[in-house]
């Protein structure tokens, strides 16, 4: 396999109120194993759509292109198959699951994924031990495992809960969709440390963000700028600081001119 994740010419649209809306207009992106890439771009450029399409959300219709994940055709897989294959999406706005116990949900998910990967399932005791340790590292209140999934969680608690799930599900590729939004500085650091703990030659990540701050902690290998459904520019970590300083306008204008 040439690359770990290979996105080529990806186009996708959504049917909104009876109107077809093209959002991705030919995305090309390669992420090698062990690397962390970041996507930046103005609102509505298609960043979140890209993450949903990669995770298999059915509202989006892929009209062209391909995505190879560890040599497999990602687009042909069901969402849960993608999760089992190692793809994890940390949602921008994690949904609430009323009445569903957080620990129970996490254990169900962990064991579903482990089963699919041919690993032994965790019994309740082993699971709780792992989960408590992971939660502690993320400075989560002990009762968060007992509460219902995301119900009544603050913005920061939801994001930590996402990172907790990521830790427990041991993905090889994680998409962090604006995980930094709504976090104060301390929370941001804790979340970033949680992600950094996963970093290894077997773990890659795609970080979607508006801000430089998260990237200070995560230090990406590559930065991509997305606009109007395409990657218009790629570069090293210095690109993020440039964007933070000068805004997107300059880059958009350059891309337009090119």
């Amino acid at each position: 396999m040439s690359q770990f994740l290979e996105i080529s010419g990806l186009k996708a649209r959504i049917d909104a109120d009876g109107q077809e809306k093209q959002i991705l207009r030919g995305v090309d992106l390669s992420i090698p194993p062990g690397e962390v890439h970041a996507i930046m771009g103005p609102n509505g450029c298609g960043k979140s759509t890209l993450s949903y399409v990669l995770a298999g959300r059915e509202d989006y219709e892929v009209t062209a292109g391909s995505v190879l994940f560890k040599g497999q055709d990602l687009l042909a897989m069901e969402p849960e198959e993608r999760a089992a294959a190692g793809l994890f999406l940390a949602f921008q706005a994690p949904v609430e699951l009323p009445g569903v116990n957080n620990a129970n949900f996490l254990r169900t998910a962990v064991n579903a994924v482990r089963r699919a990967r041919g690993q032994d399932e965790l019994d309740a005791v082993a699971f709780l031990k792992l989960a408590r340790t992971a939660a502690k590292e993320l400075s989560m209140a002990p009762d968060m495992l007992k509460r219902n999934v995301n119900v009544g969680f603050s913005g920061g608690e939801k994001k930590r809960n996402e990172v907790l799930q990521m830790t427990m599900l041991e993905p090889s590729f994680a998409i962090l969709d604006e995980t930094d939004s709504g976090l104060d500085v301390d929370a941001l650091r804790i979340v970033a440390e949680g992600v950094n703990r996963l970093r290894s030659p077997q773990f890659s990540a795609l970080v979607i963000t508006h801000h430089q701050k998260l990237l200070d902690y995560l230090v990406p290998d590559r930065i991509h700028v997305m606009a109007q459904g395409r990657i218009i520019l790629s570069g090293g970590p210095e690109l993020a600081r440039e964007i933070d300083r000068e805004g997107y306008t300059k880059f958009l204008a350059e891309a337009e001119a090119a």
Partner: peptide, 28 residues
């Protein structure tokens, strides 16, 4: 909600298990 279903499936649950989980939560 589609959002709830997708969230569960992204975490590796089959659609049927996801429905079961959400329904049980609804009835808790």
């Amino acid at each position: 909600s589609e959002d709830q279903l997708f969230y569960c499936r992204q975490r590796g649950l089959s659609e049927e298990d996801a429905v079961g989980l959400i329904v049980n939560g609804f009835c808790r």
